[in-house]
Design a protein around this nucleic acid. Structure first.
Length: 286
DNA sequence: CACTGAGCCTGCTAGC
DNA sequence: TGCTAGCAGGCTCAGT
């Protein structure tokens, strides 16, 4: 599913192709794909306008129009945003799942495919865009995401670490894949209470989050099934995954202990019980 | 504040 | 072989 590295890759592939194009038409094949405003108002807001760039905040793609307005696209689970100049093979292949289409100047098009129909498109006024961007937590690859900042974010919070990492208002862009990978690499159990994690493991978590995301961006994302870049190619980070998606009982890549599967915050999690010990300091032993 | 569960969706697969 | 129940999960909203 698209997380920060996948959305960033889509942004990088689309930005040079979309910049300077004018939106000439919009077609909506699944009404709920357009979150807001109404179809008529959406069309009124975007048609005839020129795309000035493509930005990203957390897992949100922002197709920028003049003066700070933007079209936001959230891919959620299976969304794909593909640029096409006519005969893109990947687009033809997935045409049954086309949910929306932007007709662009010069005969090009921007196609939104989404098998599961969870993805959402919206128009944001400059004010709405600014407000939305403020609501997200820090970008983990930005310079201001330091060990100190992560330490402050975790201190005094009694929540379990994994749901905390998945909370986009706490830290932006992590999803189930990279959260599991980062916790494994840092040797932290997903149920661990955030404020009980020691300084050494916080530093390890910080390094793991940044290192794993950086590598995944360089490899253009993780393609397990649906994810594609803005030009229809697969990512290459899937071969780097250590634990995500590993079947229960398969050996830990580091120590060989059988991996466990558990549900944390209603999401499947893969854990090595040896490398990721669960220490409950404030609870009596059963 | 923190947590839980429902709902949105369809393709895939394990199990019969 | 063919069917079906259950699973995958990002995000929002309602309720405790």
């Amino acid at each position: 599913m698209p997380e920060l590295p996948e959305v960033e890759t889509v942004r990088r592939t689309l930005a040079p192709l979309l910049r300077g194009k004018r939106i000439e038409a919009f077609q909506l094949d699944w009404p709920r794909t357009l979150a807001r405003p109404s179809l008529a108002e959406f069309e009124r807001s975007i048609i005839g306008r020129e795309i000035s760039g493509v930005d990203r905040r957390a897992k949100l793609l922002l197709i920028e129009l003049a003066e700070g307005a933007a079209i936001s696209v959230h891919l959620r689970m299976t969304g794909e945003l593909l640029y096409s100049e006519g005969d893109l093979a990947a687009a033809v292949e997935r045409s049954a799942y086309l949910r929306a289409r932007f007709g662009l100047s010069g005969g090009a098009a921007l196609l939104f495919f989404d098998v599961r129909k969870f993805g959402r498109i919206a128009y944001l006024t400059p004010g709405e865009r600014a407000e939305l961007e403020r609501a997200y937590g820090p970008e983990p690859l930005a310079e201001d995401f330091t060990v100190d900042r992560l330490t402050r974010m975790l201190s005094g919070r009694r929540r379990q670490i994994k749901p905390l990492l998945l909370d986009q208002q706490v830290i932006a862009g992590l999803g189930n894949i990279y959260a599991d990978e980062a916790l494994f690499q840092a040797g932290i159990h997903p149920l661990h209470s955030a404020h009980e994690i020691d300084d050494a493991r916080i530093a390890a978590l910080h390094a793991a989050i940044r290192g794993i995301l950086q590598t995944a961006v360089e490899l253009r994302g993780t393609t397990l099934r649906d994810y594609r870049t803005g030009t229809g190619e697969s990512g290459q980070n899937q071969r780097r995954l250590q634990v995500y998606g590993a079947p229960k009982g398969s050996p830990c890549p580091r120590c060989g202990t059988p991996l466990e599967r558990l549900v944390v915050g209603q999401r499947g999690s893969t854990v090595c019980p040896h490398c990721q010990p669960l220490v409950m300091l404030d609870r009596p032993r059963q």
